[in-house]
Amino acid sequence: MNTVIFRTIAPYLVALMMVFSVFVLLRGHNEPGGGFIGGLIAASALAMYGIASGVSAVRKAIVFHPLSVAGFGVLLASLAGFASLFAEVPFLMGLWATITLPDGTEVAISTPLFFDIGVYLVVLGVLATVALALEEDDRSL
């Protein structure tokens, strides 16, 4: 499995998959996609990087422990729910704001977006924890 070809190609593939996962995440509001599937793609990218370059390289690359990433995801998702506290609407109700960039492009920012990013981080964190633990275990055998 761990051939030269794979080891050479893996970093590029991982970068592509990470970008694609963010694309899928952002696409998810009105079309198929979303945080869950995006997180899955990102986690598999990390797992692949782990197989190619070793688990310690992955841990160094993502800086934070994957479980902290998952915790931050839960935090972000619940903060997105709490935002509606200030708008006199129920918990988790979607709130929208449009920001106009200097060049005239309108960007819609919403609490569902932050909720979805939270889901993305939870899925990424949890699955990366599992995958990295399994790969480490493999090495010790």
């Binding site: 902290s68 619940s78 729910g81 506290l85 918990f91």
Partner: peptide, 27 residues
């Protein structure tokens, strides 16, 4: 409008989840 008082329904569930997330990061 939803009254702030109605949020007492959500806090008992949301706060522990929130706290668990913070504690997970403060491992």
């Amino acid at each position: 409008a939803t009254a702030i008082a109605d949020w007492t329904l959500v806090w008992p569930v949301a706060l522990p989840l929130f706290g668990a997330a913070v504690l997970l990061m403060a491992r």
